[in-house]
């Protein structure tokens, strides 16, 4: 384990009956990095996070937190981790300030320190106006903010967020994203989500799993540069349907998406595509308006990996996260 790693998962495997929910997944999270943990619903993200946190025991593999093998009795390590579950729930009879003070009581025995920190978190997450209300009346977004606040009570070095923006309205989502951006550099974050635009906007690294298997693990910048040009756009004045039909049979075409008079084409062989697309345009006598390559969006990478090459790990980008 490298010295600046806060978390290392080695060969994590979890089975529920015949279903292998997580299948030999390994990754590392380094201090101060923000890791987007993405995958379709049911991919095994929450199961993986629960194993990291000690809420589930792996059937195989091991988790190291801050250099120590994970153990629920290791309170010193637990004190350095914050966690927000996908559906945070709290004792409904409590008010937010007293809940935060209760959580703070696990980190410090000094009542004044706890109260001060709880008030700071109330302010940080905009909970002051809710101070007089019981949690039972909180909206989804308000509970999410309280969830974030409780996770920060112990000033964690590793923050684990499970789907923090799901179910939130645009404003709530914006607030959570903004907060995560502010946290960058102060703590390592591992954020599970299926909202890829969020990941693309704020994450340093991407860890992608599908059907329990890791399919991608790399810095976001590396993903983009590695695959730059794999998506080509060709725009013609007319006859785009004929062109699409002609290109669809080419062996190097992975997917074609029409966009008006343009086609977005995912290709496996950029050189062949660069030769044959203009040739096809000329053969049909079409007027070429635009022909360019661009970096693929994370969504396109995600779709190509989960649809086209299911389960096949990208060896060229292994071990880069964090």
């Amino acid at each position: 384990m490298s010295p600046d790693s806060v978390l290392e998962a080695v060969d994590l495997t979890k089975r529920f009956g015949n279903l292998t929910a997580v299948d030999h997944v390994s990754f590392t999270v380094k201090a101060g990095r923000l890791v987007g943990f993405v995958g379709p619903n049911g991919a095994g993200k929450t199961t993986t996070l629960k194993m990291i946190l000690g809420l589930l025991s792996p059937d195989e593999g091991v988790v190291f937190r801050f250099g120590r093998e994970a153990d629920s009795r290791d309170l010193e390590t637990l004190a350095r981790i914050g966690y927000v579950p996908d559906v945070p729930s709290f004792p409904e009879w409590m008010r937010p300030l007293e809940f935060l003070e209760y959580i703070g009581g696990f980190f410090s025995r000094d009542a004044e320190t706890v109260k001060k920190r709880a008030r700071e978190m109330m302010e940080e997450f905009g909970l002051e106006r809710l101070a007089g209300r019981k949690v039972e009346g909180f909206s989804r977004g308000e509970k999410q903010r309280l969830g974030m606040a409780q996770a920060m009570m112990g000033e964690p070095e590793l923050l684990v967020l499970d789907e923090p923006t799901s179910g939130l309205d645009p404003l709530g989502r914006y607030e959570v994203i903004t907060y995560m951006e502010r946290m960058k550099g102060k703590a390592a974050l591992i954020v599970s989500t299926h909202l890829l635009e969020d990941v693309e906007r704020i994450c340093d690294d991407v860890l992608m799993i599908d059907r329990g298997r890791k399919i991608l693990d790399a810095p976001l910048s590396e993903i983009k540069s590695f695959r730059e040009g794999d998506t080509l756009t060709v725009e013609v004045a007319e006859g785009v349907d004929r062109l699409a039909a002609a290109l669809a049979g080419m062996p190097w075409v992975k997917a074609i998406s029409p966009r008006g008079n343009a086609l977005e084409i995912m290709v496996s062989d950029k050189k062949a595509a660069g030769r044959e697309i203009p040739a096809a345009v000329a053969r049909f006598g079409l007027e070429l308006l635009r022909f360019e390559g661009r970096p693929p969006s994370l969504e396109e990478v995600f779709i190509s990996l989960t649809r086209g090459d299911q389960g096949e790990e990208r060896n060229g980008m292994r071990g880069g996260a964090g």
């Binding site: 629960k50 946190l53 000690g54 809420l55 629920s72 309170l75 010193e76 637990l78 004190a79 981790i81 966690y83 927000v84 579950p85 945070p88 709290f90 959580i103 696990f106 980190f107 969830g147 409780q150 112990g154």
Partner: peptide, 8 residues
């Protein structure tokens, strides 16, 4: 789940 991840 929150409680079990606290130092208790």
């Amino acid at each position: 789940q929150i409680l079990l991840t606290k130092p208790v």
